[in-house]
């Protein structure tokens, strides 16, 4: 799947107001993506921390180079790119520190964090060292970074942070104009389906998903109280029989405690009928939720 840029910020100057504005639009974007709440908080936290660093650096270094921050998303990874000018003198220090952090194991990182928070002197600019440690603890991949010296005084520092959704046991099939978002969150034991379903090739689309479920049956079996939540605005008739196929496969691979929640408009009688019909075919009671 292609990588998608979900957020981009670029500016010559960065002040507290622009940081606030950026964070609130990031927060809105994250909300529309239907991520689990823990991941939503994580994304916000990483963004806020990056902006905090960029803001502090920009107060120290006067340069003609812009500050930028971007968030990319692809199926199993979210990537953050933060870039800002730093003084060439401090670039060397940052690089050594990043290399050191990457080298630490999770346990070592934790104990180094404790030592740092206890001993590091507070300055008005805040401890960048501590910020990097927190970012490293929140992300689950090594830091990638680049330093490009522009002049004797100024170097551009670019930091790339990655969040692996795979290691969070989160799998997503992104929403498209014709197909719904399907998200399997094995850690929080829920599967959600949002959006529309009118794929060109409904059989092909759903067979792929059913095969994927079968390949990952151990993850399904490991869920103790799974919930499948279906909230479709629209589905065409060829999707209907495929929804039955999909739900059957989910039931087949999940614990009997599986709860199926079906959301539809209370005044949409057709949709209510469909839900009851599917429930009858798959022999499983649905919890009907009103929109």
């Amino acid at each position: 799947m292609e990588e998608k840029k979900i957020y981009s910020f670029s500016s010559d100057v960065i002040d507290y107001d622009s940081v606030n504005e950026a964070l609130s639009s990031i927060s809105n974007i994250i909300d529309t993506m239907h991520f689990p709440s823990q991941l939503r908080r994580g994304l916000y936290m990483i963004s806020a921390e990056c902006f905090d660093n960029m803001y502090k650096h920009s107060q120290k270094v006067l340069s003609d180079f812009p500050v930028f921050f971007e968030i990319f998303y692809c199926r199993d990874e979210i990537r953050f790119v933060a870039s800002n000018p730093v003084s060439t003198k401090s670039a060397q220090k940052i690089q050594t520190y990043l290399r050191f952090i990457n080298y630490l194991s999770d346990e070592e990182l934790k104990s180094h964090y404790f030592t740092t928070i206890k001993t590091e002197k507070k300055t008005k600019k805040g401890g960048a060292g501590l910020g990097l440690l927190i970012l490293k603890r929140k992300t689950n991949c090594p830091f990638e970074y680049n330093f490009e010296q522009k002049s004797k005084k100024t170097t551009i520092f670019t930091l790339v942070l990655k969040l692996s959704l795979k290691s969070m046991k989160l799998y997503r099939i992104s929403e498209t104009e014709h197909t719904p978002l399907i998200q399997f969150d094995f850690k929080h034991e829920n599967i959600v389906m949002y959006g529309q379903s009118r794929p060109e090739d409904a059989d092909g689309f759903y067979i792929d998903i059913c095969n994927w479920i079968a390949e990952n049956e151990s993850d399904f079996a490991a869920m103790e109280r799974p919930v499948l939540h279906v909230d479709l605005d629209y589905y065409n008739s060829s999707s209907l029989k495929n929804l039955v196929r999909f739900i059957r496969v989910v039931i087949q691979h999940s614990a009997p405690s599986l709860k199926i929640e079906w959301t539809c408009d209370s005044d949409d009688e057709l949709a209510m009928d469909d839900a009851q019909e599917i429930s009858r075919i798959v022999k499983k009671k649905f919890v009907l939720l009103e929109k």
């Binding site: 908080r41 936290m45 921390e49 905090d52 507070k122 805040g126 401890g127 501590l130």
Partner: peptide, 12 residues
């Protein structure tokens, strides 16, 4: 709900 790094030192 959320706190940033520089707050974390102050809370400590």
């Amino acid at each position: 709900e959320y706190f940033n790094t520089s707050s974390s030192k102050c809370i400590l």
